[in-house]
Amino acid sequence: MSRWGYFGRRLLLSVPVLVVGATLTFLMIRFSPTDPAAAIVGNTNTEAGREAYMAVRQDLGLTQPLLQHYVTYMTDLFTLQLGQSWVVSRGTPTVELLRIYGPRTLWLAFWAVLIPIFVGIPVGFYAGLNPNTPVDYLLSSTGIVWRAMPNFWLAVILLTALSQLEFAGVTWGSLGVETTVTGSPDLSNLLNPQNLFGAVKQILPAAVVLGSASMGSEIRIARTAVLETINANYVEVARARGVPERLVLGKHVFRNALVPLVPTITNEAFVLVGGSLIVEVVFNINGVGYLFYQAAVNGDLPLLAALTFVFILIVVFMNLVQDFLYVLIDPRVGYDNQ
């Protein structure tokens, strides 16, 4: 199978995943042990409550025959008519909610991916270049601890540290631009440096927590990758031919060591989508994870189903991007009989 054939197969395979995922959300609305309409209305014992209940059932399509409901539901999802919120923000279309909440989560995820890349990978490379030295042990074990720490706990600790500590009268809040430790970043007018700095600073603690586990993984994998390439024959040959050490490292070691890091980074980005829920709840950021949590706690099942579908969509898309990168970077893809 050729490389593009491989990619085509992956593309084709993502279709049933989407369909099965959408069907699962349908089952959730139609057959969940928690009646979505009852969860929305709350009290169904009064006359008005019962009427409201029937109306909601009608609106959700629960009164339609099974097959017809399924067909309309699936068509709606795949044409991205994602319905509306019923409890969290009654009447607001889901798409509108995503437009409001989405950018904050994207901003958070962007920094949560970026920080580990720019901290974890250099640290890992450094440890790999100086293996089995005290510094290596220190860095590697920090990475291991950093990886195992639960996000929710790290968030709580960091939150307190930032809001209580002060050095020479400077606290985190008053550093540079005045911000609070928790709360959503203001993403309007990012071209203004003042606003940009404020928005970055506002998201930074949450991003560090969210990226913590990725950072640990990236330290570890970068270290192993450097160790593996530095002992490779071509590196030795380059050295023997008198290629300057700088060039050996830059061109032959680091570049090759980056290959195993690409899937790690994309996989980590995938984990972040889920992790954002806890971080956003603790840091009180009104992002999509927070929205999902609110929908779950308040029994807003239609919104929950739509959000789940959106998440599946994102993940499938990200997986495709990863496969695409693979095909571009690694000429062996599609030929090894995986």
């Binding site: 395979l13 049933p16 995943v17 099965v20 995922g21 699962l24 959730m28 969940s32 042990p33 928690t34 995938f270 984990v271 989508v273 889920g274 992790g275 829920l277 806890i278 999902f292 949590y293 779950a296 706690v297 029994g299 099942l301 929950l304 789940t308 998440f311 599946i312 993940v315 499938v316 997986n319």
Partner: peptide
């Protein structure tokens, strides 16, 4: 099985846990 597995892994783990705990919470 690949499709089913990919779908399950397709929803971030924590979200699916939250989702199911809420859905099955009253049973």
């Amino acid at each position: 099985m690949v499709v089913i597995g990919d779908t399950i892994m397709g929803v971030p783990r924590l979200l699916i846990l939250v989702l199911l705990t809420v859905l099955l919470g009253d049973t």
